[in-house]
């Protein structure tokens, strides 16, 4: 992560608040923003190498466990996934604390991406855990295993992170509220594990949960697999962060070029409640006088509030990302115009 400041990124996040800067400043922002993908290649190669060696160790080096047989090998995927998921949730909370202390929106973006990636890893954890439970205990779900239950509760809590976040219109308030949620939920993770652990008698002794009393080849495989999963998380995190910044860059660039619709999907519904329309409406008029006059003769009768140019920008944004954030914003822009 580069330590430079990205003036463009901070401004392009909420274009309706930031004043329109000079073109020179914007272009200087582009040059720094072009360095966002730095280090991604090395990270990706390291991840691929680590994953390959971890899989090779799992399948060819680690001994087959006496009681559970081949199925036990899912442990090398499942437990690192779970550890990384929970660490990602806690890290998201810590990044949110930094956001609330510094009021720098980039930390909120990092916290969001960390939690987003952890959610994806968490779904993987639940699936692999279910497979393992089915294989070794005969049921897809076991209530008497406290780790499973507390993990499910944590996942249910974090599943509301994105609905909460995208149900708030104002970008600044959205970042603040999401950070508050991330902090509370991050603190909830260890507490919940404590409470659920207390509530149930152990079905299994914690043999498989800790690497301390594993035989040496298994412990080694587990550690390599943990490192590989961490690298995978870091790579996906960096890719997602870069994708988000690039999308903001594209938005800002099309805003400079005068595409009116480039900023409308996020602010399109801001006028629904009267008290929020007041701060949002005034700077937007300042920001887009040229575009409205330029695109007014081009506007087709069927397009209600956006120019045809804007419609094309919204459409080609489709393949650039498959993350849920862009899904929600696209869905909103299509549904509500």
């Amino acid at each position: 992560m580069s330590s430079r400041t990205f003036p463009l990124e901070k401004r392009s996040e909420n274009p309706e608040i930031s004043p329109q800067g000079s073109l020179k400043r914007e272009l200087r922002g582009f040059r720094t923003d072009a360095e966002h993908g730095r280090g991604l290649r090395a990270l990706s190669i390291a991840t691929v190498a680590a994953m390959a060696s971890a899989l090779a160790l799992i399948f060819f080096y680690a001994p087959i466990e006496a009681e559970e047989g081949f199925l036990q090998k899912i442990f090398y995927l499942h437990v690192p996934l779970a550890i990384i998921t929970l660490c990602g949730f806690v890290i998201g909370g810590i990044l949110a604390i930094v956001h609330l202390r510094t009021r720098d929106r980039r930390w909120d973006l990092r916290s969001y991406v960390a939690i987003h990636m952890s959610l994806i890893f968490g779904v993987g954890t639940l699936i692999t855990g279910s497979i393992w439970a089915r294989g070794s205990w005969g049921h897809w779900w076991v209530w008497s295993e406290p780790t499973l239950v507390s993990f499910l509760i944590v996942m249910l809590l974090y599943a509301t992170y994105q609905p909460l976040r995208f149900a708030i219109e104002d970008p600044e308030r959205q970042a603040r509220y999401a950070s508050v949620f991330a902090i509370v939920a991050g603190a909830f993770v260890p507490l919940n594990f404590l409470a659920v652990r207390l509530s149930t008698e152990y079905l299994h002794p914690r043999v498989l949960g800790s690497s301390s009393n594993l035989p040496a080849p298994m412990a080694f495989t587990f550690l390599v697999s943990l490192v590989a999963m961490t690298l995978l998380y870091a790579t996906l995190y960096s890719y997602e962060l870069t994708a988000k910044r690039t999308r903001m860059l594209l938005k800002a660039r099309s805003r400079i070029l005068g595409f009116q619709g480039a900023s409308t999907p996020r602010t399109g519904r801001a006028g629904s409640s009267p008290e929020r329309a007041v701060p949002a409406a005034a700077p937007r008029e300042v920001a887009t006088p040229i575009t409205t006059s330029a695109s007014a003769p081009l506007r087709l009768p069927c397009s209600r509030r956006r120019s045809p140019v804007a419609r094309t920008t919204a459409t080609w944004r489709l393949p650039t990302s498959c993350s849920s954030r862009s899904f929600w914003s696209m869905w909103r822009s299509w549904r509500f115009g």
């Binding site: 809590l157 509301t160 909460l164 509370v184 939920a185 409470a195 659920v196």
Partner: peptide, 8 residues
Amino acid sequence: LALPLLVP
């Protein structure tokens, strides 16, 4: 939001 937080 409240239900998972209140599970403990």
